[in-house]
Design a protein around this nucleic acid. Structure first.
Length: 614
DNA sequence: AAAAAAT
């Protein structure tokens, strides 16, 4: 089924539900659209499994339903954003949009069931799905919101009408009740508001922005494809992330959530053949998940237009707006054909949100709500952090000792994985080689490897065939890898944020995790932030580290460019009063005050909020 | 100085 849900809805005036036999399909893509897979041939369409309505379609240029398309200005039908989905209310969704749609969203025949065999794979799935979600621990989690007219949070999914098909997928995912970030972020998003959210992954962050997007697209009838090159596609939502693997992961999640909703999710990223991605796009796309480089390529080829974007989500938003990415993001968001803030809905998610990045981010937002959700209970306690003083020349043998000990302690069950972070790609290769030589099955992931190699390495690691993964920061953020028992910072990062993200690869799913860092004279600039972080997380700080920390002067200590002051994401910079100051105020000179900061706003977060955020 | 991200 090539036609996306949105396309179908846009043309729903005259509906032809006959599977795969619509004239429009026949007209546009004769071969592909009329194909009926073997298992569906001779099968009666039923309310639960026939594809979304297909239509005798007027050409895109004259088939307008609902609002009139981009050239006419406000696509929001007059600024009442919560109602945007109701344009041209033709009743096809019934009174309660979600339920009405879902019965027809029935699934495209070729849609692979991401849940596997619906009835038999529940265990496998539940384990995966609930990774990192400790529902019990969520009850007294500190939450801070700021902004105008913050919609109230919900306590159950039942309170929100996300639509039947999506609700079914939520049940399939074993999501019993919304996590805090979902409780707040979903109503905010459903109300049409822009959002800057700080929340840990594993607490349902991906779902927190996917649910409202999917739900909104399901019930929105606003879609109209403006005339353009026939091969240009017009996604309604764009989700950007900083690494290819993370985009894949988000795509996989989004596919589960959108199963049989008719909402089409496509992923596009570099390093993989573009032709296959182009074919997927041609089959229809409502939600595009992408890394920036490949997206720019697609935009320049005019294979994708952002003209119809209703939802923009940036995952790991602080990384996306960091120096390396900011120009590309600005190009995509500000210099192509994406609707401006206020005409689209923008959702930014990250665990760490430095103030200066918040300031940058506000360019992309309109009257947004800031949301900070504290860590799950005392979950940092789940990650035991250790720092050891190890000279460069001793690192390998020291690592060897750790791995041997781990092996002998039986900590290394079949599924106990060790993730080793190093600074450079060369260093990754060479350490992997050395580990293998010494009898430790290791693999490596970094940016100099082919995408095939990267994905292969990740699979080897996840499956336990290579229980040691040597990685650069490409693996630091967002990746949900079950059974990582130990994160070793073989080389410490230069930024405490990166450290926070790295160690957050373990201690998930209510399991304990261990994080060991090798510290030496090359890491002096990290002494203070690291010591402060560990102290806040109730970790035992070695005395030698405390001495280094007290010695370190911020100016000389390092180029921790955004220092502790910004690292903690739990505060809306708009409330800081100091946000008018020049940017460089937040540079290295702010380290200590930054840390003192978390105690300075009410203590709601207390300690720990700063750690293990993801 | 390094990593990531298009070909």
């Amino acid at each position: 089924m090539r036609t996306s849900w949105a396309d179908s809805v846009a043309n729903s005036a005259s509906e032809n539900a006959a599977t795969g036999s619509s004239e429009s399909n026949g007209l546009k893509r004769p071969t592909r659209s009329t194909y009926v897979p073997p298992h569906l041939r001779n099968r009666q369409p039923s309310s639960s499994d026939h594809p979304p309505p297909v239509h005798t379609t007027p050409s895109p240029a004259n088939g307008r339903v609902g609002y009139g398309g981009p050239p006419t200005g406000s696509r929001w039908g007059g600024g009442s954003r919560p109602d945007f989905g109701r344009v041209g209310d033709n009743g096809s969704g019934g009174g309660r949009g979600g339920s009405g749609w879902s019965s027809r969203g029935g699934g495209r025949e070729r849609e692979v069931n991401p849940f596997g065999d619906d009835d038999n794979t529940e265990e496998e799935f539940s384990e995966q799905e609930n990774t990192g979600i400790n529902f019990e621990a969520y009850d007294d989690i500190p939450v801070e919101t700021s902004g105008d007219n913050v919609p109230p949070a919900v306590n159950t999914f039942a309170e929100i009408d996300l639509g039947e098909a999506l609700n079914l997928n939520i049940r399939r995912c074993k999501y019993v009740k919304p996590t805090p970030v979902q409780r707040y972020a979903i109503p905010i998003s459903l109300a049409g508001r822009d959002l800057m959210a700080c929340a840990q992954t594993g607490s349902g962050k991906t779902a927190a922005f996917c649910f409202p997007i999917i739900s909104g697209i399901m019930r929105g009838q606003y879609v109209q494809r403006p005339p353009r090159g026939a091969r240009t596609v017009y996604p309604l939502a764009l989700i950007l992330s900083p690494t290819r693997e993370l985009s894949c992961q988000i795509h996989d999640e989004a596919k589960k959530f959108s199963y049989q909703t008719g909402v089409k999710v496509v992923v596009a990223y570099g390093g993989a053949p573009i032709n296959q991605q182009l074919r997927e796009l041609e089959r229809g796309v409502d939600i595009l998940v992408a890394t920036p480089g490949r997206l720019v390529d697609l935009l320049e080829r005019a294979r994708v237009s952002l003209q119809m974007i209703r939802y923009l989500a940036l995952d790991e938003a602080d990384r996306m707006l960091d120096m390396g990415f900011e120009p590309q993001i600005r190009k995509i968001v500000e210099q192509m054909d994406m609707p401006p803030p206020g005409e689209r809905q923008t959702l930014l998610f990250s665990a760490t949100f430095p103030k200066e990045i918040q300031r940058l981010a506000s360019d992309f937002l309109s009257n947004y709500i800031f949301l900070a959700v504290g860590r799950v209970g005392s979950s940092t306690d789940l990650i035991v952090q250790r720092v050891e003083f190890v000279q460069e020349s001793d690192k390998r043998s020291h690592l060897m000792d750790l791995l041997h000990a781990q092996r002998e302690n039986g900590v290394q069950g079949k599924q106990s994985l060790t993730l080793v972070f190093v600074e450079t790609k060369k260093g990754a290769d060479s350490l992997e080689h050395w580990l293998c030589l010494n009898g430790f099955p290791a693999t490596t992931i970094h940016g100099d490897r082919s995408q095939q190699e990267r994905e292969h390495a990740l699979r080897l690691f996840k499956s336990g065939k290579a229980p040691i993964l040597v990685a650069t920061d490409v693996a630091a953020r967002g990746l949900d890898i079950p059974h990582v028992a130990h994160v070793v910072n073989f080389d410490l990062p230069n930024d405490i944020d990166d450290y926070v993200h790295r160690i957050g690869r373990t201690g998930r799913a209510g399991k304990t995790g261990l994080a060991t860092a090798f510290f030496n004279d090359n890491n002096l600039s990290m002494a203070r932030p690291l010591a402060d972080l560990m102290q806040e997380a109730n970790q035992e700080v070695p005395h030698w580290l405390t001495r280094y920390a007290s010695r370190a002067s911020y100016g000389g200590g390092g180029r921790n460019r955004r220092s502790g002051g910004g690292r903690f994401g739990g505060r809306d910079f708009r409330r800081d009063g100091s946000f008018n100051r020049p940017t460089d105020h937040y540079g290295g000179a702010n380290s200590s005050s930054g840390y003192g900061y978390s105690g300075g706003y009410g203590g709601g977060y207390g300690q720990g909020v700063t750690s293990a955020w993801d």
